[in-house]
Amino acid sequence: MESLIRMVREHIDTIDSLLARYVAGTLPTPARVLVEAHLELKPENRIKVRNLEAMAGQALSEIDPVALSDHEGMLAAVLASAPPRAMASKTVPEPTVFPKALFDFVGFDADDVPWRTRMPGFKEYDLGDIDGCHVNLFWIKPGRTVPAHTHEGSELSLVLDGDFTDARGYYARGDISVADDSVDHRPCAGMDRPCIGLAVMDAPLKLTGSFRQMIGDIIG
């Protein structure tokens, strides 16, 4: 979680830093899953990941190797360990909307999400706190505007289907939105289809709009 907070507080507005932390293995589990899902939907960014991995490998190759203190003992322990048990095979349906990384993480696809309505035109499925982050799936009705809000910490949002816009730009399937306490926005779903997404945050959001504006957003 610390790396996620640091990334946003540095006001990095591209996903390059996020991908670098993914390669370094420093992201909390939900953020790692979010990045893996993003890479499935935006395969062009796998090139960046491969380049970052190559740079990391080059850096490691320049470090002087250190001999193992008990090579024979470690080898004996590995050889003495019990072989892994065979897993029973089962047929798992291929996801149609969720990337496989997310499907494996939550255990279902978009059609089977047990949504709960939070307000007219906005539904959510709360996955709870995982590895120091709060995780949820969200569904926004076409054309619906979410009430204006900022964030007490940081939030990563991955668009899984549909799209939304805010004052910063346009986000479609596979895009990641990065927000923190410097961002005050009113995301609005596109008109063609519901916007479905995955949100990973380290602190709650905070409503900022006027009461009149919030009522208008809620009743549409």
Score class of each variant (00 low, 15 high):
P30W: 10
P30E: 12
P30Y: 04
P30V: 05
P30S: 08
A31I: 15
R32I: 04
R32Y: 04
R32F: 04
R32P: 03
R32W: 00
R32E: 11
R32M: 06
R32S: 08
V33R: 07
V33C: 07
V33D: 02
V33G: 08
L34Q: 00
L34P: 09
L34H: 13
V35P: 10
V35T: 06
V35R: 09
V35A: 04
V35G: 07
E36H: 12
E36M: 14
E36I: 15
E36A: 14
E36N: 10
A37H: 11
A37T: 07
H38Q: 08
H38Y: 09
H38K: 06
H38M: 15
H38A: 07
H38L: 03
H38T: 10
L39M: 10
L39I: 05
L39P: 03
L39F: 15
E40V: 04
E40Y: 05
E40R: 01
E40A: 10
E40I: 13
E40N: 02
L41Q: 12
L41Y: 00
L41T: 02
K42M: 14
K42W: 03
K42C: 08
K42G: 00
K42N: 07
K42L: 12
K42P: 00
K42T: 14
P43W: 01
P43S: 05
P43L: 07
P43F: 14
E44C: 04
E44V: 12
E44H: 06
E44M: 07
E44D: 12
E44T: 09
N45C: 04
N45W: 15
N45L: 14
N45R: 11
N45S: 09
R46L: 13
R46H: 05
R46S: 08
R46D: 05
R46I: 13
I47P: 00
I47G: 01
I47N: 01
I47M: 03
I47S: 02
K48Q: 13
K48C: 00
K48H: 07
K48G: 00
V49L: 09
V49K: 06
V49H: 02
V49W: 01
R50D: 11
R50V: 06
R50P: 02
R50Y: 09
R50L: 12
R50M: 11
R50T: 13
R50A: 08
N51P: 02
N51F: 12
N51W: 04
N51Q: 13
N51G: 11
N51M: 15
L52Y: 13
L52M: 15
L52H: 03
E53R: 13
A54P: 02
A54F: 14
A54T: 14
A54L: 14
A54G: 09
M55S: 06
M55Y: 03
M55T: 10
M55D: 12
A56L: 12
A56Y: 00
A56T: 07
A56F: 13
G57D: 13
Q58C: 05
Q58N: 12
Q58H: 11
Q58K: 06
A59C: 04
A59F: 08
L60I: 06
L60F: 11
L60H: 09
S61F: 14
S61N: 08
S61K: 11
S61T: 10
E62F: 01
E62M: 05
E62D: 01
E62K: 07
E62Y: 02
